[in-house]
């Protein structure tokens, strides 16, 4: 028996999901962060974030089509994490690192939190 492993398949699927998001095709939830709105697919959000996993596996909340995040969440930090979910690329700017890390803690994206910690540590001159 042999098996063909398509090594690009996971990234090709993610690329297509991101194209669907940008064209607002089958997006099924609006995330409200302060006054900003972000359209996304629940399945992608819950696959990447412990918080969204908890929300969308809750039978009382899974059919919500809009979710408001804590007003303390920074919309720019959220935008960067949403972009990461759909691209695998995390843009870490020094000016936004604390906002990104706090948002990642809130969204329960533990590996991203660890990465932010390492980035802060490596940027610290002392």
């Amino acid at each position: 028996d042999s098996c063909i492993q398509f090594t690009r398949h996971a990234s090709d699927v993610l690329l297509n999901l991101n194209r669907l998001r940008s064209r607002d095709i089958l997006t099924d939830v609006t995330i409200l962060v302060n006054r900003q709105q972000f359209r996304a697919h629940k399945t992608v959000l819950m696959a990447c974030s412990g918080l969204f996993y908890s929300i969308f596996t809750d039978s009382h909340k899974c059919n919500l089509n809009a979710i408001s995040l804590d007003p303390k969440v920074d919309p720019e930090g959220f935008a960067i994490l949403l972009e990461f979910m759909y691209t695998s690329r995390l843009t870490l700017k020094e000016s936004l690192i604390m906002a990104i890390m706090n948002t990642a803690i809130y969204l329960q994206m533990d590996h991203v939190v660890d990465t932010c910690h390492r980035f802060i540590k490596s940027s610290d001159p002392s």
């Binding site: 063909i4 090709d12 699927v13 064209r23």
Partner: peptide
């Protein structure tokens, strides 16, 4: 499955959804 007969295919695996214009 990662058996010894696994062949790696490096090319695109699916059609590409067009970008939004």
């Amino acid at each position: 499955y990662e058996g010894s007969n696994t062949i790696k295919e490096m090319g695109r695996s699916i059609h590409e959804i067009p970008r939004q214009d």
